[in-house]
Nucleic acid binder design. Structure first.
Length: 104
RNA sequence: GGAGUUGGCCAGACAAUCGCUGCAGUUCGCUGUAGAGGAAAGUCCGGGCUCCUUCGGACAGGGCGCCAGGUAACGCCUGGGGGGCGCGAGCCUACGGAAAGUGCCACAGAAAACAAACCGCCGGCGCAGGUCGGUAAGGGUGAAAAGGUGCGGUAAGAGCGCACCGCGCGACUGGCAACAGUUCGCGGCACGGUAAACCCCGCCCGGAGCAAGACCAAAUAGGGGAGUGAGCGAGCCUUGGUGUUCGCACCGCCGGUCCCGAGCGGACUCCCGGGUAGGUUGCUUGAGGCAGUCGGUGACGGCUGUCCCAGAUGAAUGGUUGUCGUAAGACAGAACCCGGCUUAUUGCCAGCUCCGGCU
RNA sequence: GCCGGAUUAGCUCAGUCGGUAGAGCACAUCAUUCGUAAUGAUGGGGUCAGGUGUUCGAAUCACCUAUCCGGCA
């Protein structure tokens, strides 16, 4: 997963994407204790990511996605994180489309 | 109104909708229901629970330390006593022992505790420098210098004597006690500080921790249970074999100890499993909550009724909208479970104290 | 979840049976040199991580707190 993925990165998150054989999208979270020390803050980040993923899961069908947090995400508010994630989802879809075109 | 102090409460609520985790039901579409904290935190103490033979003792090691009570237990809590701080409400208090012993007390100072005498004061001797003796009132040093004040006394002085205060011991009174009282007597005073220095005294503590432990079970290594018997020496019985009694041993196992005791095991035969990855379980009904009542100053306890209130395992509580509300927050996320302590933190209420103003 | 250790000058470390906090490197000034380096001399710089207590006196002893590092798998 970590070797074959397409990366998308900003100051809040690193997002890895890869095709899967299924129609259902799958989400993995890697929220490190090193970048975010407090348990409540880690839970908050995970909730925001899950909610955003749930709302966009139709567009992300057929992808495996792993989200890794960056130090800046600890202090970010909900709006900033949502904007960042939406941008990442967009890039994931583009990466998938590009790959499909290459194959065909 | 301001400043302070003590105690207590809350941790947004309600509704709609889209989602998450457990449980129950299901016509497998879904439906119903429950779902983080006062600190869940730090891991500083005490227990429950599980395993280690954990049963006793010795020695280590650690903890606690005014008294009484509460408690499963505690280093916690309640009530009381002593000491200290504050004008006060109130707060703080590791608060046993320094005449069992050892150590330390820098610098300064004559001297830092067995004692002793630098300046001084007084007396003898000497023309004098001085020397011999008495003294600890005064000076100076220091954080600390061997009771304080006054009077008497003396060569000068000194608890040397007396009065008051202080101190120690004993009796008496009050109190369960710590302790207090000062009514009394005795002692002229002998006893510096430090035990969060070693130590002594009293009391307490076996170790590890749910990543404990148990079960299912690919792989791999060889082990586990049951039954029977037994080393050496001596005595007794017996034709012999055998049996029985006593003594002496060796090795391993107390996760701290080259320790002691108790206990278990050692050889042979028979039987079968063993347990790493992974999974299941332990896993939530408990020193439980709530209400009433009784006892107690209180911590708390008794009785009655009633309720079931998170159990995840890449680890669940959130998003949007509306109403109330000035506003929606602060610290912060259960991981075996309880009782405390400590730390972080939002808003509010009540009692009490001091100060200022008005009446 | 459980258990250890560390924190001292700008940096790396001494000092842990209490008594005015030191060393090396670095920094500044001076000397040396035609000048620089090297060398020598002098000097500055510390809330001993923070707080409370014990003590006459605390970097040192005790307790609490903060930050960092490590072990158990």
């Amino acid at each position: 997963m970590f070797e074959k993925a397409t990366r998308s990165r900003d100051k809040y998150f690193t997002v890895l994407t890869r095709d899967n054989q299924d129609e259902v999208p799958r989400l993995g979270l890697a929220i490190s204790k090193k970048h975010c020390r407090k348990a409540t803050a880690r839970n908050r980040i995970k909730r925001v990511i899950r909610e955003s993923f749930r709302q966009h899961q139709v567009q992300l069908a057929g992808l495996d996605i792993v989200v890794i947090n960056q130090p800046a995400a600890t202090l970010a508010d909900r709006g900033a994180m949502n904007d960042s994630l939406e941008h990442h989802w967009q890039r994931c879809r583009e990466a998938k489309r590009k790959k499909k075109n290459q194959e065909s």
